[in-house]
Design a protein around this nucleic acid. Structure first.
Lengths: 188, 188, 188, 188
DNA sequence: CATGAATGAGCGTTCATTCAT
DNA sequence: GATGAATGAACGCTCATTCAT
């Protein structure tokens, strides 16, 4: 199926989906997403074959944005701890700046209609992060654990921290620091 | 006079809900839950006024089961680390033994129709756990963090570990130990 | 089917039906009627085989009460106009004193589940009224019309008048008099 | 672009509602109305947001048709009695020609889900009729009665007459004349 | 007899998806 | 390509009626 022309509409639909998912959950009608994007309900199905397909694409979109934000300007020559801290800061910064995207990502993550394949691709988007984490844990207490487990742990600590960060923006810096130190204690 | 309302049926409905939610998600039809429980669809609404009410009750039920399993036979005179390890083991043991309940709990936890009040009651079920964790972190690096944050961290590490535990039962003991050590590094 | 014992419960159910129909319409659940009568839902079906049967019986009950009130203490030796006026006053008095019964009667009257047979019996309850009306119209402009038509006209004028009487109790006496004069102009 | 909403289907739905209401009462399923109109059940809700909304619109539709038929070709320069007789004839003629619409109107009139606002609009549709009736009763016995009461009386006589008219079409002309004379005796 | 738990057909309404324009 | 009308399966919930206690 050749991709329809307007990249603008595609993006508008994805952005609308984020807003609608945040406010109404995954059960929100596609018609509402289309409306929010300023196109007709039929048009949504011109850009995405099914609602589930839209969700899958959105998941990758958001995951990719999050990953990019984490890796932007990574000081690849600096000490590992500094690199990891930079990554941490990029990650949490993105989350703090995009609460709706974060919430949508969270909901999509547990959704039934997320394909195994897409979930896999989502992991691949984190490859570079995984590499850095892998290097960081060398010699540490989790050296022998599956890397996926260590990644999942980092993810869990990040999600938890982000939740508190968003609930109490005043103490955001404190939480960010505390979260990183906790992470560092875990791996190093 | 007249048949009394059957506690068995209540429990059958809750148990059926767990199975159906696990396999079909929260969007599963109430009719399917009733069928799975061996009663008519109308009967479900005799025991629970709405689908949401069923979900709310189920959430507390599962949370309570999980909490009980964690606290059973807690050696209250032993060293804190030992107590926490016991709790950890009870928790993960329950999760390993009840994968469907775990999955249902996870889905219910993010559900829109979970009442704030029920969420609150869910936290209260964990009070004793929180107290133990609070004592464990005294003097440690998270002494000054909000207790809720520390609880959330423990929860995140537990959930993550459980996920791997269920995916690879062979290495369950390893994961359980590694998870606990990670937790202990976080708080103590 | 032998009639169950307690005439009290029967009456309680009929009275409850009046109240419930008035406030919730004919679509009101039988369970609500039973509750209002202070018996269990099952018991209602011990006294009336179906909801429709209850409605049919109630219709006759109310029609009969209305007819009795109209005919009470009729001065059978007085002039026809006086007798008719007495009847009119009894009728409207009953309606004014029993607004709920009146409303229920009105709703039942247009209901689908009123049997033709019961409707017929309802007419028979008005036989004595019809006789008086028949004598009153002799020699008047409606002498040649079917008596049923004249009865229906009287009924229509009465219903209309009662409606206004209930809406504006202050002017009740005025309306009652005006209504009677209108009726008399119609028939005599 | 896209097919426009079809006025035909709207009308088909309203007409179908008349037929279905006549045969099954107001409790008739919306699905049946849709089927009778030759559209899918979902389509009904594209044209009317709820079943009640459909009923409200239908009520106004029918009331308006009845009013138009009554006022068509009114000889506004003729004597009042002639004008009223013309109106009477138009009214009863419409009713005789549209027995199903008449029955539907009757049922809708006592329905619970008729809005106060719509009821009010229904009265407004009869304004011109009311004006003519008001002029007719001047100097007569009902000069001092509320006009609404006089209207209601006329309506009651009309409804009653229509009932007999439909039951015995042979004698329709007789009934129509008798009914008008009765009305005239009431007001003039 | 009385109770109220149990039943299951039935209803109004929603919504992902298709298709005529 | 874009639109939005059209579709119909599906859902949560109600309620008259039956029947075990």
């Amino acid at each position: 199926m050749a991709r329809p022309r307007s990249e603008d509409k595609r993006q508008a639909l994805l952005a609308a989906a984020v807003r609608v998912i945040t406010s109404r959950g995954l059960g929100a009608p596609t018609a509402r997403i289309a409306q929010e994007a300023g196109v007709s309900n039929g048009t949504l199905f011109l850009y995405f074959p099914t609602k589930a397909a839209l969700f899958n694409e959105l998941y990758l979109d958001l995951k990719s944005a999050m990953s990019s934000a984490s890796l932007a300007n990574l000081p690849r020559e600096a000490a590992l701890k500094l690199q990891l801290e930079h990554l941490w800061s990029g990650w949490l910064g993105w989350a703090a700046a995009h609460p709706e995207e974060r919430r949508a990502l969270e909901l999509l993550g547990v959704s039934d209609d997320l394909t195994a394949e897409v979930r896999q691709k989502g992991h691949e988007l984190m490859t570079e992060v995984a590499v850095l984490l892998d290097r960081s844990r060398q010699g540490g207490p989790l050296t022998d654990a599956p890397l996926a487990y260590v990644m999942a742990l980092m993810n869990a600590v990040a999600e938890t921290t982000i939740g508190f960060l968003q609930a109490d923006p005043e103490a955001a810096a404190d939480h960010q620091r505390r979260g990183f130190e906790a992470l560092w204690r875990l791996v190093a």
